[in-house]
Amino acid sequence: MRRRPGIGGLQTAAAARDQFRLLGENVAKIRTDLMKEQLATFRSQLEDFARKHKNDIRKNPAFRSQFHEMCAKVGVDPLASNKGFWAELLGIGDFYYELGVQIVDICLATRSLNGGLINLQELCYLLRQRRKSDRGVVSEDDCLRAISKLKALGNGFEVISVGKKKLVRSVPTELNKDHNEILELAQAQGFVTVDEVERRLSWTSGRAIDALDTLLDEGLAMIDDGHRDGKRRYWFPCVSPISSSLGVDS
């Protein structure tokens, strides 16, 4: 006998639908809860990791450089914004902003001594002296990163390579190839003479004097007439630091 539809059947069907919906909602809720829980775990794990290695990242320049490499691989720039997750967690942005400010400070303070061109090694040395509390934890890599961030402020700061050394330029002076070659030559002893420039670079006397005069005018060179051979020496504070006693960094 075929059952005819009745009010009871409809009610049962509705009740079953409600049951299914309820169950579905429950399952969904359980899933979201699970996801939330997992996310929370992930986050706390990450925080644990960060907290655990925070000191390493802060104090150990090698670790920090590896951290940057890792970030670069997964496409995260912890320095891109100071509000990012990493920055918030590690304060790593602050670290580089602080370095940047200190670098600008040092460059300005030594400008009258070196004409606005400073050896990266010396810059690091002065930076470490300034940050005495955690001395020795700033690497040249950190300096370079901080300087690259300073580019956001305009073209004021630039790192140039002269021979084996890296120099940080904080004035808009353009150095041409001749000047660079002289600076490279000067790295051996800290100074050059006109004779030496002519001989080693096979230049005419006019070319050598011209380039040296420009470097003098820019405040990058200083003359020294005091040697007993009587030959004028041109010294370059940017390649032979005055402030750090010689050889401290090497």
């Binding site: 004409g115 405040g219 200083m222 003359i223 020294d224 005091g226 040697h227 020496r233 010294w235 006693s245």
Partner: peptide, 22 residues
């Protein structure tokens, strides 16, 4: 001071800014 060991500081510098600092 450190500059006392840097030879060019014993020669009067010809460029004005450098000389003023010296």
């Amino acid at each position: 001071p450190h500059f006392f060991n840097y030879p060019p500081y014993f020669t009067l510098q010809p460029v004005r800014d450098t000389r003023e600092k010296q």
